[in-house]
Nucleic acid binder design. Structure first.
Lengths: 215, 215
DNA sequence: CGAGGTATTGACACACATCAATAGTTGTGG
DNA sequence: CCACAACTATTGATGTGTGTCAATACCTCG
């Protein structure tokens, strides 16, 4: 199912009756507060499962909004249950994906709770870069972030103004180079050291997982 | 398996070869930064699964440290895989528990990213209170937090000094009353309104889950 | 060409950090 | 049971990172 750019797929508070599989494009998950401020919770890429956190709750915890024009497939709760009954290995992979997301949220929490703005921004850009690399999209290549500085500010828990100043700081330090929204890392290891968040190594195809075709 | 109070069960960076089921007592999950600062990621209660976030990674992402003297059971990765093969309903419940944890982390991220210190503390105390109520421990009763203000500061992303001042603020506003580490809420709804984090309603025993005895 | 969003910059305010000191509390060993 | 040490809580004075308000430039698209 294709969507237009900058469209709400599901709003926080809505009934959470299914999941979405993101096949193409970018989607952000965010939550708003009564005072109008907003926190971006996750920048989703192709391959991600969307909307799963709201499953145990009576209504959706996050707003899903398209950035680019994405392609999304819908999975019902019953369909998910069917996977858990028939395809235990796939179910286990869904479970592990949820744990990965938890660790990414923990890293964000550490970053917002304990790092100053410049390191926070570096950690975020690095996280996006690493995930793009894992998808094979960009290895050493510049990344093209389809996000305004306002959105990035909502990721980092900063104001737009300060985010802009911190971008300028990173650029002056030579940690990044910018051409519009395209960002390049002249020395990625320097950025890694600067950010302070440890590099995570995901282990794929672990041998303790249930066999592929179990019955 | 019993543990002493204030003991490390598993340190971040250690091999993550199993999970733990917390049967009794309190355990906190935290991560440290190179500069010595620390972020508490989760306060675990009886019934929680510990150590799951590290499963997809080559080494543990979080340090698990006992607060009280807890009772913990160990589950191997193979044992978890066995559950996914044989007990799909239980596997699904594990999956949903992980999604719940994601939402709690999101709430913490919103809180640390977008709320000022006093609301942050209120939201944290409220979260603990609600979870104790869900366990049937404390409904309207005062809560006894076995945590120093330093630990609470590491939850909130604040300094010890400021956490202390914010405790005093909440007390002066009449939102909490303290006797040592015992905290009471004279008007819990006022605290809820003040905190700004929406109340989450978890739906148990959802009808789309796989049947109890599937085969 | 004009309009609305986005990026950038400056001046100033404030929430929280930092440094430092004191008091209170807990635990431990003699 | 007291004495001492270590930890924890509290309070004050001062510094600073980030927020707020405001203005201008830029950019994209009709």
């Amino acid at each position: 199912m294709p969507f237009a750019a900058n469209t709400v797929i599901r709003h926080e508070g809505d009934a959470a009756n299914h999941l979405y599989m993101l096949h193409d494009g970018w989607v952000i998950a965010s939550a708003g507060l009564s005072d109008g401020s907003r926190q971006v919770l996750k920048v989703h890429f192709p391959g991600d499962v969307l909307g799963a956190p709201s499953l145990p709750f009576s209504c959706s915890a996050e707003t899903l909004r398209t950035l680019t024009s994405p392609v999304v497939a819908t999975v019902s709760k019953a369909g998910l249950a069917e996977i858990f009954v028939s395809l235990p290995r796939l179910a286990m992979l869904f479970f592990l994906a949820a744990q990965e997301e938890r660790v990414f949220l923990m890293d964000r929490l550490i970053s917002v709770g304990r790092l100053r703005a410049s390191k926070r921004l570096a950690a975020f850009l690095l996280h996006i870069y690493d995930r793009l690399c894992a998808m094979g999209v960009s290895d050493g290549a510049p990344i093209d972030l389809p996000m305004s500085q306002e959105m990035i500010a909502d990721v980092l828990g900063l104001t737009t103004v300060h985010t802009n100043r911190v971008f300028a700081q990173l650029e002056m330090r030579g940690l990044i180079a910018r051409r519009g929204r395209i960002i390049e890392f002249p020395d990625i290891m320097a950025v890694r050291r600067f950010s302070g968040i440890p590099t995570r190594h995901i282990v794929r195809n672990q041998n303790w997982l249930p066999a592929m075709l179990s019955r």
